[in-house]
């Protein structure tokens, strides 16, 4: 089924490096979902990484080549969409290319995290998806606090959540309430190995919150957080599964 939108938009698909290498199914689900929603999607071959792992470690000065590469790959598209709040935020805040600064600025404007693209640009109000499971939503920090994908528990402001809004369109899906709805999972890029003890403890506590409230699947907008929690779940031999939100939103109605 294809949902028609007014004019076909040309989307450059940005698949972060670790998704490309370890979670290809997330890239596939993102691509299929966008196509299903009427977008013309292209994946520029030759993309690598947004440069965030180096920048967050204090080596932003090493990321110029990654930046130039990114600009070269994505400058031509109406929109750039990626299934990762964290990588998208990094591009939005730090993509610069002295040789092509207007192009870099344009990308910073036109890059979207997948769920925000769905709710804000495509203005999706219904999805042909069914997923009859209890799902816990992990609000990844960079998406939530950085890109504003959802209201933040620290602020006195009206509630909203773009990922939740989409999950509620999925037939049969039951969202579980959490004790701490937007606490960090402790992945934090290289933090996950340089501060191993705290990182793992944070991850364990997040996982426990989901398990305690009966989640069968933990989902979210960032595979990095999910990979970290999945590693802990598997070590604990928990039956809980981890899926990126694109995989759920792309579930077919049988």
């Amino acid at each position: 089924m294809t949902i028609k939108i007014a004019t076909t938009v040309k989307v450059g698909l940005f698949i972060p490096c670790y998704i490309d290498q370890f979670y290809p199914q997330v890239g596939i689900a993102t691509l299929q979902l966008l196509q299903k929603l009427g977008c013309e999607v292209e994946y520029p071959q030759g993309q690598t990484c947004c440069g965030q792992p180096m920048a967050n470690s204090g080596y932003e000065h090493l990321t110029h080549q990654c930046n130039s590469l990114f600009v070269r790959n994505f400058a031509a598209y109406d929109y750039i969409v990626g299934p990762s709040g964290s990588c998208v935020l990094h591009i939005k805040e730090h993509l610069h290319d002295p040789a092509h600064e207007p192009a870099a600025a344009g990308i910073r404007e036109r890059i979207y995290e997948l769920t925000a693209f769905l709710t804000d640009i495509l203005k999706v109000t219904a999805l042909p998806a069914r997923f009859p499971h209890k799902v816990g939503l992990h609000q990844s920090c960079h998406g939530q606090r950085g890109l504003g994908l959802a209201q933040m528990s620290e602020l006195v402001a009206a509630p909203f959540s773009k990922p939740e809004q989409l999950l509620r369109m999925v037939a049969g899906l039951e969202l579980v309430e959490l004790d701490r709805k937007d606490e960090c999972c402790g992945f934090g890029g290289t933090f996950c190995v340089t501060e191993e003890a705290v990182s793992v403890k944070m991850g364990k506590d997040r996982v426990t919150d989901h398990v305690k409230h009966g989640a069968e699947v933990i989902t979210g907008t960032d595979v990095s957080c999910l990979m970290h929690m999945e590693g802990i779940l598997r070590r604990q031999h928990q039956p809980v599964k981890v899926m990126h939100i694109a995989e759920i939103l792309n579930q077919q109605i049988p």
Binding site: P24, I28, Y43, E196
Partner: peptide, 19 residues
């Protein structure tokens, strides 16, 4: 340090770009 208390992600045969 990742492996101390976490499993590594299962590596797929094919990357997204290969697919």
């Amino acid at each position: 340090p990742w492996f101390k208390q976490r499993e590594m992600p299962a590596p797929p045969a094919q990357s997204f770009s290969e697919w």
